[in-house]
């Protein structure tokens, strides 16, 4: 583990995206506790807001600049920035271009990791002895996480199958996976798409929930809260009793 290799603990900045902060604080708490279990020194800069994704996603790059500047001010001092959100990571790593690309900006952009890839690629975790989740679980990969961060192989390409979230979840006692018929299909959240193109967004969400339901899953998990907030919203309105839980909680030892 890197902590020991260097002899000094890594300083990790925790970025808790707005959705998680507001609606799923338990995901933020699980992420923090999980990172601390590996002996990392984790800080949450309390003045953080957002990664700038809503504006960038809509094409309004100029309007994103000040938010991006704030992000770099908050996180510039850490060895790694870790967040339980793939789409926010993608924003920082691949799309944070509204501001001048200073050394600090480049540092932040190259050091921001989505939680699963941080555990899998940086910490190279090989066990979660505390974790046990005796349930049938359907995994949802956020599209940015899947196709831009390459957290798993994608069905569109001819490539060796791999899945970092499945590799981690596979270390959890008692877990059972439910297979979806369209595992890579976008759920329709799409950031601002979910409000600007509400009709198609909701239909895609309903179709995703139906697929999850048919898979016999009891829980749906993902490394991205925003997709799950959308899916859960659709499921509740449809009267479907599926439970949605962030992967950080399962890996941190949540039992239900």
């Amino acid at each position: 583990m890197l902590v020991e290799d260097k002899g000094i603990p890594m300083k990790v900045g925790l970025f808790v995206p707005c959705y998680v902060d507001m609606f799923h604080p338990e995901t933020g708490i699980a992420t923090l506790e999980l990172l601390e279990r590996f002996g990392l020194s984790v800080e949450y800069p309390v003045d953080q807001t957002c990664c700038g994704q809503p504006m960038t996603n809509t094409g309004c790059e100029r309007e994103a600049a000040k938010t991006e500047e704030l992000f770099v001010r908050n996180f510039g001092k850490y060895d790694y920035i870790v967040t339980p959100s793939g789409s926010c990571t993608n924003q920082v790593r691949n799309n944070m271009t509204a501001i001048e690309q200073t050394e600090a900006v480049k540092h932040v952009r190259s050091r921001t990791y989505e939680l699963v890839e941080f555990l899998h690629d940086v910490l190279k975790v090989d066990a979660f002895p505390w974790a046990e989740f005796p349930h049938r679980v359907a995994l949802h990969n956020n599209c940015n996480t899947l196709r831009n961060l390459r957290i798993a192989s994608m069905s569109e390409r001819r490539e060796e199958p791999f899945s970092k979230p499945k590799a981690l979840l596979g270390m959890v006692k008692g877990i059972e996976f439910a297979d979806l018929t369209r595992p890579d299909e976008c759920c329709g959240f799409g950031g601002t798409f979910s409000v600007f193109e509400e009709g198609v967004s909701a239909k895609m969400g309903q179709d995703k929930v139906t697929d999850q339901l048919k898979s016999g899953a009891e829980y749906v998990t993902s490394s991205d809260s925003s997709c799950m907030m959308h899916q859960e919203g659709c499921a509740r309105r449809m009267g479907v009793n599926l439970k949605y839980i962030h992967i950080a909680q399962i890996l941190n030892g949540a039992r239900a």
Binding site: F23, H24, Y44, G199, Q206, G233, C234
Partner: peptide
């Protein structure tokens, strides 16, 4: 067509 998520007692920021 979607329910609005339940808002918890405190944000992560407040908890922290």
């Amino acid at each position: 067509k979607r329910d609005i998520p339940e808002t918890p007692k405190q944000t992560f920021n407040e908890w922290y």
